[in-house]
Nucleic acid binder design. Structure first.
Lengths: 213, 213
DNA sequence: GGAACGTTTCGGCGCGGGCCGAAGTGTTCC
DNA sequence: GGAACACTTCGGCCCGCGCCGAAACGTTCC
């Protein structure tokens, strides 16, 4: 455990992991630029993170793409971030960026922030999940109508939201709903960040599903 | 998050936290002896762990008792330990100790190891929990008959077992069952360690509840 | 009051590791 | 083939921090 903590105890490696929480694959240079370190430094950090099982790489030509090793890594990182708590943003640019993140964002493969909490509330009112975020039997039927297929992965999981300090829906169900919302154009990323917004079509769609307030 | 990781990235501090996973309060000297460092070193580490919100202290005369700050800390530590995976034990003494831990142990306030998995299987067959470790409505009734009272704390939670690599039952329900088993003398600690065994009375009790295989 | 004990503060030592730049390898494009 | 580019390896610098022992402080017990 101490070796795992040591991997995340470095400023640069922590920045890499936070960046990768958007669920996409980044190249080594992108991460180096993002964390403001030399490419050589980034290279060594990536090797260590991969050896530690936190990241996986995907080499393609002269590029080295890396991404989180799976949902279990994302869950661990989110749990640690939530424990540390939100730190006050410095500067106007950072403040508006963090406000956008607080409004709505992806947490690896599912929705988080106030948007994620709104989704949870809607699902609770519909009886899809319990207050503890466990899927009900009628909820499972509801999910299957939206194309959900149970797999080995845990269907539902509570993930503590680090901006709202309240659990939101993660696990296979959370990932599936997020995917469906993107496919239908109901949510859209703001630029290339993790922040997302509910589109007008999304508001309509949520209302039809009975998810809106 | 990086600050939290830095706290756990030290060999000595990690040993302190692992020791405290038994749920009890330890004195500074006990922890210093356990981790084989000077009392002065232990003192500084404890101060930092408390400032970081991982531990809480309870001063009593010339003693400084410390314990984990709550179930959320225990859950985080267990998640990180499970991620790192079980490391092979060195030496006969260590091997038999780790075998005892694998057979059954407490994970802060609930049961883990093969005993914890057996409990989960029993609860699953009884229909108290689903395969995803969510409490069913009939399961809640069953728990209340054993004196369980719902609180603000999440009733059920999946906690990845670091020896069995399978989730076991944590949360308020897991803690309550563990407490009941201890009160009834169904489980007993081996010495002063985290390892526990099911007593003959426990085997009988589990059978009566329908928990045994 | 005095001795024993648990804990804390401080000074100083030494190691681990994060950083960079320079040089080298492999890939792509012209 | 040659230039541009992404990445890696290596050497060297330096800061952070974990460690201890000595000394001080507070509590307990006789």
């Amino acid at each position: 455990m101490e070796a795992l903590a040591a991997l995340l105890a470095d400023r640069t490696r922590a920045a890499f992991c936070q960046a990768l929480m958007d669920g996409r694959a980044w190249t080594a240079t992108e991460l180096a630029t993002h964390a403001r370190v030399a490419p050589s430094t980034a290279s060594e950090h990536l090797t260590r993170l991969i050896e530690g099982g936190l990241l996986v790489e995907h080499r393609q030509g002269r590029h080295r793409y890396v991404s989180l090793a799976g949902p279990h890594v994302a869950e661990l990182l989110e749990a640690m971030t939530a424990f540390a708590g939100p730190k006050p943003a410095r500067g106007l640019r950072a403040a508006s960026a963090s406000e956008a993140m607080a409004r709505g964002r992806t947490c690896y493969d599912h929705l988080a922030g106030r948007l994620g909490i709104a989704l949870k509330s809607g699902l609770l009112e519909l009886g899809v999940v319990t207050a503890d975020l466990a899927i009900t039997s009628s909820g499972l039927v509801w999910l299957k109508e939206l194309g959900f297929e149970p797999s080995k992965r845990q269907v539902s999981r509570a993930c503590l939201d680090w901006t709202e300090r309240v659990p939101h829906l993660a696990g296979a169900a959370g990932a599936h709903l997020c995917q469906v919302f993107f496919e239908r154009g109901w949510v859209r990323r703001i630029g290339t960040t993790r922040a997302v917004v509910l589109t007008p079509a999304g508001e309509l769609g949520w209302r039809e599903l009975g998810l809106a307030d």
